[in-house]
């Protein structure tokens, strides 16, 4: 009696389609940095995951570009060393803290950067964010911001809420509201916006990582409208076009990374 055991069909895994865009705007230097790791290698994505990184070097301090580049390099090393069978959320947070300390050891607090790190593994997303860069999720037509900024405004508003004052306008209108309360390179990150549990990704999800040069200029509705075209590179080009149309004289460096999930 020879029975043929049913061969289990290999389950299709979500694949990722990525695009990126970076421009200098009206600044003297380009201080944003970004990178994708493993974005084109299906086997690597399955075994080790996909990492998308965005760092916005602080133009108001020394050598923002060197710091944002160094942050990416440290994060890549951390990513390569992660234990994929362990708790990736905790490891990602650890990686960010270690990167911060290494940046402080190297730049001695004279420069800093923001960081958005997105780790895609096994159809799930973990992220960790420091500073005021943006992470958006588009799902079923709605664009939702996943992270909070760590700046003066949020700090003051949190204090106001603790005092029982729920009106956000004093915090929004204060001088230096946009100054960062936490940044990579301070050597002592207190607050970080990160996932303890992963976000389960679905077909059709799209993620946008962008620096404040994009996020502060384009409202979420406009960013969402850019996602109408399928190709992430085209999405990025649309974002670029819309920012150029604004022609702001002091346009910040702007960088966007788009990741689409699908089969």
């Amino acid at each position: 009696m020879n029975s043929i055991a049913p061969v289990p069909r290999p389950r299709r895994l979500l694949s990722y389609w990525v695009g990126n865009m970076q421009q200098q705007g009206g600044r003297e230097y380009q201080e944003d940095s970004f990178c994708f790791i493993n974005a084109t290698d299906v086997t690597e994505i399955r075994q080790n995951g996909l990492l998308a990184l965005l760092a916005d070097g602080m133009g108001g301090m020394e050598d923002g570009k060197a710091v944002s580049e160094a942050a990416l390099q440290c994060m890549r090393e951390e990513f390569a060393a992660m234990d994929r069978s362990g708790d990736l959320g905790a490891q990602l947070m650890q990686a960010v803290r270690r990167t911060d300390e290494r940046l402080f050891a190297r730049f001695m607090g004279r420069g800093g950067t923001t960081l958005v790190a997105c780790l895609f593994f096994g159809e799930k997303l973990w992220f960790a964010c420091v500073g005021d860069s943006f992470l958006y999720l588009s799902r079923e037509g709605a664009l939702v911001r996943l992270n909070a900024e760590q700046n003066q405004q949020h700090l003051r508003y949190a204090e106001a809420i603790a005092r029982g004052e729920l009106d956000p306008s004093p915090a929004n209108e204060m001088e230096d509201a946009a100054r960062l309360s936490e940044f990579m390179g301070s050597g002592n990150i207190g607050e970080m916006d990160a996932t303890r549990r992963p976000l389960a990704l679905q077909e059709g999800d799209a993620l946008i990582l962008c620096s404040d040069g994009v996020g502060d200029v384009l409202p979420a509705e406009e960013l969402g409208a850019c996602l109408a075209v399928p190709d992430p590179m085209q999405v990025c080009a649309q974002i670029d076009t819309r920012i150029r149309a604004r022609a702001l004289p002091a346009q910040d460096n702007y960088t966007a990374l788009v990741i689409r999930c699908g089969y």
Binding site: S15, A39, T40, D41, I45, Q234, A237
Partner: peptide, 20 residues
């Protein structure tokens, strides 16, 4: 990273040079 694009799985659309 391997050279060239195309590892993204079953995404069939043509990749085009972005405008601008």
């Amino acid at each position: 990273a391997p050279p060239g694009w195309g590892g993204g799985g079953g995404y069939g659309s043509q990749t085009q040079a972005p405008r601008g």
